[in-house]
Design a protein around this nucleic acid. Sequence first.
DNA 1: AGATTTACTATTTTT
DNA 2: TAGTAAATCT
Length: 685
Amino acid sequence: MINFSQELNSEQLQVVLHGDGPCLVLAGAGSGKTRVITYRVACLLEQGVLPENILLVTFTNKAANEMVERVKKLTNREEKLPWAGTFHSIGHKILRAHANELGYQKNFSILDSDDSESLLKLAAKDFSISAKGKKFPTAGVLQGIISFARNTEKTVAKVVEERYPQFSVFEEAITSVAKAYEERKKEANAMDFDDLLLNTLRLLNISEIRKRYTQQFQYVLVDEYQDTNKIQAAIVKKLAEEYKNILVVGDDAQSIYSFRGANIENILQFEKDYPQAKIFRLETNYRSSQEILSLANAVIANNPKQYKKNLKTILTTGVRPEFLPHGDQGEEALFIAGKIASLIRGGIEEKEIAVLFRAAHHSQALELELMRLGIDYDYRGGLRFFERSHVKDVLAYLRILNNLADTTAWLRVLMFEEGIGPASAGKIIDEVKKIENINGLENVAQALSDKAKSGWWNFMKIWNKILEAGPGNPAELVNKIIASPYKQHLEAEKLDSAERLEDLKQLAVFASRYDNLENFLADAALQEAFNLQRQKEKKDKIKEGKIVLSTIHQSKGLEWSAVFVINLSQGAFPNERALREDGGLEEERRLFYVAVTRAKKYLFMTFPMSNSRGNNSYAGSWGENFVNEPSMFVSEIDSELLEDKSFLKNVTVLNDPSEGITYEREDEPQKKIKPGSFLVDVEDL
DNA sequence: AGATTTACTATTTTT
DNA sequence: TAGTAAATCT
């Protein structure tokens, strides 16, 4: 038996023991909400609830896997929770079982955002008109519009009107493109990420199917509820219909995904949907020191629309957070690298240190510096494994094998054959539609020009190699592709082909966990396999910890002893583009809140006063003006809360591009410095 | 016409 | 860097 009262505080215990019926848990940052859900699940299992009767929805598959592992340990059971995962992976599981009912074939493909963008491009081709010198939105923008519309249950026209008024002349055309896109997807027997949610909801509207699942899920638990959208909220509401044991956990102050249709109002709506809902508050912060928490509270207080929370903490370190301006990004990087080295010397473990930033490319200068100093880091901002182009190439071959109608997969593998461009690729795809099964591919060549034909036969060489493998063996399939002329293609085209081939061998290792192509492809698309692998890697390297570089979005739910939030200049953070959106400033502020509340003991906020020309940096660096202003969030912090008060109080950064920056502080006379001439405090290194 | 090469520009966040 | 538009090649 688990000794709950010993391992949980009284707030947490309430939820774990009494979380039946509809429950809304308002959990502040660092209040142990993951812990509460984990223990709640363990508690249910100990009460004899069967694993398959528990639905646990988390924000990432990784979070789900970690929770499941902890539950296993707590309860000393070997069995997994079969229904733990993201909305997308759970939706997919349900859809697999009932695809036919919605007019899909069971082997449907999942389109990631690149795939759907390329399909959209095809769909948009017929509609690309320009009006009054205005250009039709790019595929990326179209995707944003259509996806947002679907996730918020608004019409495309309405979204254009509200969020993209500059394209209002194209309202009708965009609506037509959206329709054409839907048709293309259906033809390709494919679903995009939004479909995984929308179609799940459609299935649950069929009463026999709904019954089957509502009767199964005695308990429904949802983490990060503040970041769910309308569709997701509707899905869980349906699934919990029978038993009404639905427990949602969230923090409105940490809602950072509204660009994806997430809706904080879901929390308010929950209370309306279940007027009898129990409301729990977790207001004790176990993570951060009082000093850090005060700073976080001071900033978030500027967001007027909020649940009132009264976060208490039990930790006081006496160390205040620091705000540290530097000359430019290079010096910022140098400082951070030096500080990290001294923190490590001071006894803080590498894995207890993180550097957080607003956008993936903000870390570039820092990465160079860390590499130079030989500090190893784990980078979470950039391309993930399954998003690398060569991995996607290989997956595309497998997708075709699994679903011959998969247009985007075809486009991908055909376009890099010499002699085949968009036109011939289109022709081939049309020909393939006429074919009954994969053996008929030989005949496609007839419709092609001589040049395209040679490209086609090159494709067929790879294809025939793939067919040597057993169809039920994903690992062998991957290995066949590595052994095919695709390898020569990589070697000819890419300078780093050796590394890429290594990746592909890794992919074969992932694949060996599967005996079924469909499941392998689905997990790859939903990033599930990758996360499992990452966990394994972590276990292997438990001793040689690395510091973490991450976007703030990806740092959600995590914590470190020391956290750097970098590039705190106006325009970079808050992000200039985000500010243009409705409610953008509030969301950026919540993002800042998330960033600083990741820190347990030490928080450093850094700010590059200038961007050197040619440096890959943000706002203001492009024209002549390369002087930054500090982030407005910093001015929302009472100087009493910071370490170096004098600096913050009197710094004035003036726009004087030719001369550099003029600044003033209490303890020094006015100083003028040209960009690039700043010196780093040697003590810090 | 369709494929390929070259020149140029713009970078938010993600299941 | 990577994705796109324009220019050039076949």
